[in-house]
Design a protein around this nucleic acid. Structure first.
Lengths: 305, 305
DNA sequence: TAAAAATACTCCATAGGTATTTTAT
DNA sequence: ATAAAATACCTATGGAGTATTTTTA
């Protein structure tokens, strides 16, 4: 069974536009690079379909009826709308326009992330960026639910659905209270602190930053006796400030300085941490590529100061 | 030679809408009452034509890409615009919407014209009426140039291009100064005034109202000795008021009353005058029919008071 | 009467159908 | 393993061409 044809297609509108502008079937056909009879037929079919007379046919000069004039306006608007839609869709597909939803862990705000965002906004002003800070667990969930396009996690999100690209690798530093006795004996090794309480964050989901720190301890042959877990680095630093123990944080966090806390380099330890850019493997939007590109370029530059 | 196909036709947009709404080719095909393979092909061709990926094909559920979402918005707007254009054109063609340019002689304003306009506006509120007062010569010229759709003339416009429908027939009355001696000897015959100057209007184009009056004189067996021509009835009445002579006007003009002028019935004379609705014979717009219809209905009513 | 649009017919490009294969979960 | 989309191939509608007639100014 054949479906009923609406017959008001764009081709007919273009034909109509040509005739309405030339007010002469022969010349319009010429302009459309076609013969006159099929053009006449198409216009007649258009009139039939619309159940309206569009042209007053008199030999010397054909004229638009009022209905024809109205259609002329509508047709022009539609042709314009089509072109606009075409451009819009194309730009979005190319990743030059659209929206990118980025989530990130709080500790990323001390490193290159602000520069990355600025650089991205400058390069792709037509892409609207939405930014939300969350912990690794939330990042993972949002990415799976497609509520985010990109998650900036530390160290990464372990999921078959997710592609994880390392990004901004840096050493770890020790965070301790600025009244701590440790301050007197720099450089410090982790092993020398094994009796102190270790403030770690977060525990879940694996791999977590806590795993990175514990691995660094293992490398020095011990496991901290007392472990305090919290949700994020901000809480961890607060706990350190009030003397709850020591913590280990990325150097970029230490560089920013925090009230009541001192950051010390770790001796004899090459443990490092890195952020990662994470996105769903099945997300083919070019915006992600665009973001990753900017990030890569930014990392190539010698780190400023 | 075949013309390059734009291929972004409305059918494809409708197919796209169905798939975008169902997010399932099979169900969309069912809804469109067609088979799935041609639908898949049409969508692929649409993607190719736009040079953009519109759907993320994963087995469980297909999803719209950002480009697809953008197209969805544009497509909905376009389908809506099409429907609107269709309605608009149809209504205008039916004569239920649009514009009607009416010109009329000044003397028409004393008769049914005001009621006709009111009635028309009430019946077709969607038709925008433009009204202009002019003399017969201007009416004729504007109609020929297609600057007017309808001309209300007295008695009519004589042109092979113009169709003229009589309208509001009425007797003639005499206009004389209110100080005239004639007032003492009513009823008056035209013949009894043959020595007075006759104020006539206008002379051109033929047939003019002046012709009507002169014909009435002929019927009584004389031709006025002294004739004064002017452009319109307003001037004629002013001339009568200042004693330049007598004039003959349609009764409706006399009914309105004018400073310094008296109107008297004519005895033994069945001369009548009528307005006419005039329009180009090649003007097929239904608006004219609508106007004529209202006029006819109005004339059928027993003349109020 | 002559210029232009409408009609008559022919052809083929492409939308759409059916059968089948590929893909992705 | 299976549901769903893609591919292969065929059919037929309808858009476009050429030749001709009709219309109207």
């Amino acid at each position: 069974m054949q479906r009923k044809e609406p017959a008001l297609n764009l081709k007919r509108l273009e034909y109509f536009l040509a005739v309405a502008e030339e007010l002469h079937f022969g010349r319009a056909a010429e302009r459309l690079e076609m013969a006159q009879p099929p053009l006449s037929r198409q216009i007649m079919q258009l009139e039939e379909e619309l159940d309206a007379t569009l042209f007053d046919r008199g030999r010397g000069q054909i004229r638009l009826t009022q209905a024809g004039e109205a259609l002329l306006g509508h047709a022009r608007a539609m042709v314009f709308a089509i072109e606009e839609a075409r451009r819009d869709v194309r730009l979005i597909d190319q990743g030059a326009k659209g929206r990118l939803r980025v989530g990130f862990v709080g500790s990323a705000t001390h490193g290159v992330l602000p520069n990355l965002i600025k650089s991205f906004r400058r390069t792709y002003p037509e892409i609207s960026l939405s930014l939300s800070a969350m912990n690794n667990a939330q990042l993972h969930r949002s990415l799976i639910r497609r509520e985010l396009d990109i998650a900036i996690a530390r160290p990464g999100l372990d999921d078959a659905e997710i592609k994880s690209l390392p990004f901004q690798e840096e050493p770890l530093v020790l965070a301790c209270s600025d009244t701590a006795e440790i301050l007197t004996r720099a450089p410090v090794t982790l092993a020398s602190l094994q009796d102190m309480p270790f403030v770690l964050y977060p525990e879940q989901p694996r791999p977590s930053f806590a795993d990175t720190v514990l691995a660094a301890c293992s490398a020095e042959g011990f496991t901290p006796e007392r472990k305090v877990f919290c949700m994020d680095y901000q809480t961890a630093i607060s706990l350190v400030a009030v003397g709850e123990g020591v913590s280990v944080v990325p150097r970029s966090v230490g560089n920013s300085g925090h009230q009541g806390v001192r950051f010390l380099p770790l001796a004899n330890n090459d443990a490092r941490t890195s952020l990662s850019i994470n996105y769903r493997i099945d997300n083919r939007e070019r915006h992600i590529l665009r973001f990753a590109e900017i990030a890569r370029k930014l990392m190539l530059k010698p780190p400023a100061a």
